[in-house]
């Protein structure tokens, strides 16, 4: 398992993907930090975290797109699946590699916090809480992206598919706002990523929200493992 994790991490940075993703993430995070903190003179980073929600939606498909689709395309999955490693081990290693990539991106918040500490006193509990919340939500998005990547051998389709799904997830709030049926509205509200993320961003940590993201992550990792298993029987 550690072999796959190591290889994936090396692969991110032996191709442009790793650099583009980190650069894009840091650019936007830096941009929002300048506009919404430094420029208007506040040490409250809440607005930055809110804006980054949509950037994460776009960045994660880039991280996950090639994880399984490329293996299938170049038939390297034959090496993984005939090696003494379990399917769960393969999926977990791939997931962790994407998670580490995301964590590298999130390090930009720490840099911003340090910049703030020179001119004001930043609320570190909020910053750390947000990094934690971004990790929780990111894990869920990564699991979804991983699942989509396992369905196709085309990297572009994997990326666009994940974008599309992430967009639909982010639209859940606006859809539910226009629903006249209370039951469906309640259902959609409880599936909203954004509400839960906003709770975190405000500093409200609810166990139910944590459980929600962990459940989504585990569920989609399980689905991914099933897809790989099913392919053997096709």
């Amino acid at each position: 398992m550690s072999a796959i994790l190591k290889r994936e991490l090396a692969a991110y940075f032996s191709s442009p993907v790793g650099y583009i993703v980190t650069a894009a993430f840091m650019f936007f995070s830096g941009f929002f930090f300048y506009v919404q903190c430094l420029n208007i003179g506040t040490s409250n980073m809440y607005a930055v975290f809110q804006s980054m929600f949509f950037i994460v939606l776009f960045v994660i498909p880039l991280i996950t797109m090639r994880l399984f689709s490329e293996e299938k395309k170049y038939k390297t999955d034959q090496a993984l699946l005939t090696a003494p490693v379990s399917l769960a081990g393969i999926v977990t290693a791939k997931f962790l590699s994407a998670f580490v990539m995301l964590s590298v991106c999130l390090a930009s918040y720490v840099i911003e916090g340090i910049v703030l500490s020179f001119i004001a006193s930043p609320d570190w509990s909020v910053i750390i809480g947000n990094i934690f919340s971004m990790m929780m939500m990111g894990a869920a998005f990564i699991a979804i992206g991983l699942f989509i990547s396992s369905l196709t051998e085309n990297v572009m389709i994997a990326a666009i598919g994940s974008f599309a799904v992430n967009l639909v997830i982010s639209l859940v709030d606006s859809i539910s706002a226009n629903l006249p049926v209370p039951f469906l509205k309640g259902l959609l509200d409880s599936l909203s990523f954004q509400t839960k993320y906003s709770n975190f961003a405000l500093g409200i940590v609810q166990l139910s929200d944590v459980v929600f993201f962990v459940s989504v992550t585990v569920l989609f990792l399980f689905f991914t493992e099933r897809v790989l298993e099913k392919r053997r029987w096709a």
Binding site: I4, K6, S14, Y74, K75, T76, D77, A83
Partner: peptide, 23 residues
């Protein structure tokens, strides 16, 4: 296998080290 399962962007050395650990 029929098509050798090679990771295109690795060097031969790195690839064999990876397979060594994987196995």
């Amino acid at each position: 296998p029929e098509i050798p399962p090679l990771y295109q962007d690795m060097t031969v050395q790195k690839y064999l080290e990876f397979m060594y650990r994987l196995k």
